[in-house]
Amino acid sequence: MPTAPAIRLSGVSKRYAAASPVVLDGIDLTVAPGEFVCLLGASGCGKSTLLGIIACLDTASAGTVEVEGRAAVMFQEASLLPWLSARRNVELALRLGRADLPRPARRARALELLDLVNLADAAEKRPHELSGGMRQRVALARALAQDREVLLMDEPFAALDAITRDLLHEELERVWRETGRTIVFVTHNVREAARLGQRVLLMSSRPGRIVNEWRVADDAPRRIESPQVSALSVEITEQLRREILRNAA
């Protein structure tokens, strides 16, 4: 049975000024509800711009953007409010996004979400008392608090060490399966994309276009060190290098 897509972009183009170069050129993208899509590309290919357009933080110069409900966004920095505890940070998202929820219910819901990302014990800690990985998990709980169908993630683990990132991949995969969110995950890390996505989209640079896509069989739990992930990474990296070489000529 065909269902309405969570995100549908058609012919989306972006240039920042009339005379400036084209950043995004005719992007067509459909994401099904509950799908996990990784958007992969070299720095400066416009993948963050595209994410910003889907998040309504930016507008497209041409084309149409349809998003089911509005999207929640997670950034590379956790961007927590430093004067609020982890719980109050999550509560703020509940207060701003769902005004109908009374205060005790907000508190309970915030604790529930922090427990989902395995931070129930750190609820009363302030951001500066948490490690980078814990801060990103609070940011994930905050994004989930908005209760939106679509979750956009802009290189959320890029600033973390490899061990933490590896655990957060598992964490994110688990949260995705439990909550059934639609996730668009932007990254410049090929292995990360091959590890996480059900579908990996490769973007070229200048102008930004989607040049290839891979579907990943999602039958068994993957690991960053799985042979399946390695094989796909090799394949994607080869094409990524060809795209970069085009720019050298």
């Binding site: 395995n118 490690s131 990985g133 814990m134 061990i163 933490t164 655990l167 598992e170 964490e171 688990r174």
Partner: peptide
């Protein structure tokens, strides 16, 4: 058990990093 392992693993890393 996998989820429980992840929890314990994560708790250990959290303790190491704070």
């Amino acid at each position: 058990t996998h989820a429980d392992d992840l929890r314990t693993l994560e708790a250990g890393l959290d303790r190491l990093q704070t």
